[in-house]
Design a protein around this nucleic acid. Structure first.
Length: 832
RNA sequence: GCCCCCGUGUCCCAACCGGCAGAGGAAGCCGUCUUAAAAACGGCGUGGUGCGGGUUCGAGUCCCGCCGGGGGCACCA
């Protein structure tokens, strides 16, 4: 026997299996999603999507993990009889390719498409169940034609517009960034400290959808990770408050109205000053002439301060007086107006009322400037004017006119709002932290913005039939960042006739943020090759929305928020019948090594290619899936690819040991083994639905162990139950280790492919145990175990428990006060 | 400063609604086979679930307070 094993082990060669089966699968093409089968109602659809990769170099450990996890579910759905759409493509516009092109003096497409081919080859070897026929690249003109088309549709609806405003500027990448791409004051991509610039840029009006982006999260509750929902909620940042109008008295004797936004209108009687954002237009407009120089100097100072400095919480408050006053609408008091950088120009109205007693920031400012502090809510705490600790809790209103005596914040707010509304000086208001999405970039390798600027007609959209606006052929040095788009230098590309009047015009020279490309790619997969629009609504009716999306949490407020926005807009355009693109979301963990993120400087990187060479595709995939819950990080130092390889060889060997013929009826097989097989299949169904893939692997290992035991020391290799078990192992492994599973399937006498063999039917009768062990507890401590029938009645179980000698002894002379029976598993006796 | 998640054997991890704490793997040790080793096969698991309280007949699981780790937000008025 051992000799046979040794010989067989010689032939378990992962590399040979890969070489053998890959071409067979390529020929069979078993994972092509068939529209017709879904339309005919023969199969129910499932849309499985993994976040498409960026083509930088070859695949790495992260790609291996996310796709291995994703593939388990996609393959399970196929086995369960669904028609599965599981497409793949590349997010192939972007800076790394452009930077590489500059370095190598070539076109970014050279680097991009070479990497795509490398990655595609690696994905194929990796044995993923992708439908390759729908492959797309966002940098293909056939793709970005529709990105441009969508931009124009958004613009028609007033959702894409151009405005001048201070924007985030990355001095290293020489381009503007969206708010979402600035992390802790630094560029999300390169880490350079972000500065501000006043520029005219294109925006998507995401803020118009803020409320719906918030409301529709109820659809995602329980299906998206809670922390992603929390992140998005915080990012959208809805707050309720009021707009309050103050009369502002200009130096020239005229008056204008300035509105502030506040969440605490009930503290209006405590306002002792007003602060305007130093960089807001308002400040420059209202400043008294004698203070204009001071404001300009201050502004210069704050511009130099980076966002990093601004973020420091202990940063002292600074500001300048504007030499003017406003009138508090509720009590007629004259308040000085200041300019400061602690007030943000682009939130609310860019102006706030200073209530130092009840807002710490205002209090810090008042302290720095020597401004009065007036308490209007007595919370029982010491007076903020003395402690310099603002009180923000509930208390009794004092010195607050109509509010005096009230002691409830909600009532205070309601009362003051009624008063303001009656006077016409204020009203309830809602504000969002979310800003519009700045989409233009001063870089080359992206989709050109399809607009022509005409001196006579202004912004003119490029007509649909002239799309795509194709990138000019620039390379190398032409792409060097110079603070304006490299496209601007391509004069013969820029200069075009105005599509409206035919006069001389110039193309917009910015390109779109690559997040625009990825905001709709999941729609294009459903309509590859469609030429009358970005996608065919009928295709989306069939496949949409995505049932399961798998990818990293780093996109929580970037890609995922933008995609939700796009979906809602397209829904409003009547092109989609759903409002949320991704029904269910899984954020996989990251692969680390020795407790730390892999990095070159630490030298702890694990090379995917080397792991695949050493252990084979299946063992690496199995290791990643088995390591732990999918959302947990995987420390490569904690896992054992060699252990995975050992297990796969063990499973594979089972198939060779089976001596019964294919098609043997398992009904006459060993019942004990059959029970294990069917219980395993039954349990793994629930585990797979719940994405507990690591436990699925553990259950499969148990089944392999049980089958091994049956062959060696149980019913023997000829028993039909052994065949049934080995075939179940092959199907289970087809989700994780496709090559090993395929080889097992062949050795068991079947035709490829095991991936489409179908999930074995579970025999309910085999899920019921012959007998179960019931425990009998006295005072919660186990005193006896009873073998009972699974369907034992509570009364019988109780009687059996009370008759057990060990139980009788444990009770002794005490009386039984209470009996808890949970048939068939437990009896607990409370005595005393 | 605020919010969220996690803490189970040497390590990675299981444990449905609260119901015998231990499924699976790694490492280690012992055995069978072997001249030997490897491989294969078989065997070996008191830590009571970070700490302290509480609820309950019964708590890893629920509640409260700590400690430790991870993540997010942070002048958003």
């Amino acid at each position: 026997m051992s000799e046979t094993h040794a010989d067989e082990r010689e032939t378990y060669d992962p590399a040979a299996l890969q070489a053998k089966w890959l071409p067979v699968w390529e020929a069979l093409d078993p994972f092509r999603a068939d529209d017709a089968l879904v339309d005919a109602g023969e199969r129910e659809k499932r849309y499985a999507l993994t976040m498409f990769p960026y083509p930088s170099g070859d695949l790495h450990m992260g790609h291996a993990e996310v796709t291995a996890l994703h593939d388990v579910l996609a393959r399970y759905w196929w086995q369960r009889g669904y028609e599965v759409l599981n497409p793949i493509g590349w997010d192939s516009f972007g800076l790394p390719a452009e930077n590489a092109a500059i370095k190598r003096d070539e076109h970014p497409a050279t680097y991009t498409y070479a990497n795509i081919e490398t990655q595609a080859g690696s994905f194929r070897t990796y044995g993923l169940s992708f439908d390759w026929s729908r492959r797309l690249h966002t940098s293909d003109p056939e793709y970005y034609r529709w990105t441009q088309w969508l931009f124009l549709r958004f613009r028609e609806r007033g959702l894409a517009y151009r405005k001048a405003s201070p924007v985030n500027w990355c001095p290293n990448d020489q381009t503007v960034l969206a708010n979402e791409q600035v992390v802790d004051g630094a560029c999300e991509r390169c880490g350079a400290v972000v500065t501000k610039r006043e520029l005219t840029q294109w925006y998507f009006r995401v803020t118009e959808y803020a409320q719906r982006l918030l409301d529709d999260m109820t659809q995602l509750e329980g299906r998206w990770p809670e922390r992603v929902l929390t992140l998005q909620r915080n990012w959208i940042g809805r707050s309720e408050g009021a707009h309050v109008d103050f009369d502002l008295h200009l130096a020239d004797g005229t008056t204008r109205v300035v509105t502030v936004y506040t969440t605490r209108p009930d503290t209006l009687f405590g306002a002792t000053f007003m602060v305007v954002a130093a960089d807001a237009k308002l400040a420059a407009e209202v400043v008294a002439p004698e203070q204009a120089d001071a404001l300009a100097a201050y502004l210069e100072e704050t511009r130099k301060a980076s966002d990093i400095d601004r973020l420091a919480t202990d940063r002292p408050k600074t500001g300048v007086p504007l030499g003017i006053t406003v009138t508090n609408p509720v009590n007629g008091e004259q308040l000085d107006v200041w300019a400061s950088d602690y007030v943000l120009a682009d939130y609310g109205t860019g102006a706030v009322m200073g209530v130092p007693a009840h807002d710490q920031r205002d209090l810090d400012f008042a302290k720095a400037m020597g401004l009065p502090v007036r308490r209007v809510i007595d919370t029982g705490a010491d007076d903020p004017a003395e402690t310099f600790v603002a009180t923000t809790g509930d208390g009794t209103y004092v010195s607050s006119g109509p509010l005096d005596g009230l002691s409830d914040k909600a009532a205070g707010i309601r009362t003051i709002l009624e008063r303001l509304e009656a006077d016409g000086t204020g009203r309830g208001a809602v504000n969002f932290r979310l800003r519009d999405w700045l989409l233009s970039r001063q870089r080359f390798w992206g989709a050109p913005i399809p607009i022509v600027h005409c001196p006579d007609c202004g912004e003119v959209p490029v007509p649909d039939d002239q799309l795509p606006v194709v990138l000019p052929d620039l390379k190398g040095a032409d792409l060097k960042p110079k603070g304006s788009s490299p496209l601007a230098a391509a004069r013969d590309w820029v200069e075009v006739p105005c599509p409206a009047c035919g006069g001389p015009g110039e193309r917009d020279t910015d390109t779109m943020d690559t997040f625009v490309d990825s905001s709709w790619y999941y729609l294009r997969y459903c309509s590859p090759g469609f030429t009358d629009g970005a996608f065919d609504p009928a295709d989306l009716k069939r496949w949409g929305p995505v049932d399961q999306y798998v990818g990293g949490v780093e996109h929580a407020v970037l890609h995922l928020l933008y995609s939700r926005f796009f979906t809602k807009v397209l829904h409003d355009m009547g092109l989609l019948d759903f409002t949320e693109p991704f029904t269910s979301l899984l954020n996989q963990g990251v692969v680390i090594n020795q407790g730390k993120k892999m990095s070159k400087s630490l030298g702890n990187g694990v090379n995917l290619g080397e792991q695949l060479d050493e252990f084979g595709v299946d063992a690496v995939r199995l290791t990643l899936v088995f390591a732990g819950p999918p959302e947990d990080n995987i420390d490569w130092a904690d896992v054992s690819p060699s252990g995975s390889l050992k297990f796969l060889a063990r499973a594979w060997r089972l198939a060779g040991d089976v001596t019964s013929e294919p098609g043997t009826d398992p009904a006459r097989g060993d019942v004990a083994l059959r029970r294990v097989t069917h219980r395993t299949l039954h349990e793994t169904e629930a585990l797979l639905e719940g994405m507990r893939f690591n436990v699925v692997v553990a259950r499969t290992m148990e089944l392999v162990n049980a089958t091994r035991k049956a062959i060696d020391s149980g019913c023997g290799p000829a028993d039909p139950a052994v065949r049934e078990a080995a075939e179940a192992v092959a199907v289970l492994l087809s989700l994780v280790a496709p090559y090993t599973a395929e080889e097992m399937w062949e050795r068991l006498g079947h035709e490829p492919t095991v991936a489409r063999a179908g999930w074995p039917a579970v025999d309910e009768a085999l899920l019921v145990e012959e007998s179960v062990t019931a425990v009998v507890q006295v005072q919660g401590k186990v005193k006896a175990r009873l073998e009972v029938a699974p369907d034992v009645s509570e009364a019988d179980l109780e009687a059996a428990a009370l008759a057990d000698p060990a139980v009788v002894a444990a009770i002794g002379d005490k009386s039984v006060r209470k009996v808890i029976v949970r048939a068939p598993k437990l009896v607990n006796l409370v005595v005393g």
